[in-house]
């Protein structure tokens, strides 16, 4: 996995999104143990404090939990992961519609084009 960062936003929010993506896509399955802050920070070449902040935020959202002695784990609540997946899917579709609007397609025309492509 390669980590990518945009310039115009805080790094920790981008780390959060990318770890969230790893959880939703099943690369970190429900209940599995996450690598340590240090390992994750080194892998993404980011400051450990920044990585810590992203993980704390994921913890606050309830997607990961920490066990004092043994580390951090992905939640076992698969319904919650599904909700996050739906929400991320929705965001991507909204972004697509926005891009299409800039190209001059309204929502119906975009849908039409989607049908045309998927029916093939």
């Amino acid at each position: 996995m390669t980590w990518h960062f945009d310039n115009d936003r805080p790094i920790y929010t981008q780390l959060l999104e990318q770890i969230l993506f790893l959880i939703i896509s099943g690369q970190y399955p429900p209940g599995s143990k996450l690598p340590s802050v240090r390992e994750l920070a080194s892998e993404a070449s980011v400051n450990p404090n920044t990585m810590q902040r992203a993980l704390t935020e994921l913890e606050r959202m309830g997607l990961v939990y920490s066990q004092r002695t043994s580390g951090r784990f992905v939640t076992e609540d698969e319904a919650m992961i599904q909700r996050m997946k739906d929400s991320m899917g929705k965001d991507k579709i909204l972004a697509l519609f926005k891009d299409m609007e800039q190209l001059g397609y309204d929502a119906d025309q975009t849908m039409e084009l989607i049908h045309k492509i998927t029916r093939r």
């Binding site: 310039n7 115009d8 920044t50």
Partner: peptide, 9 residues
């Protein structure tokens, strides 16, 4: 660093 990014985009 993240405060700079949040504040100035």
């Amino acid at each position: 660093v993240d405060d700079v990014r949040a504040q100035y985009q």
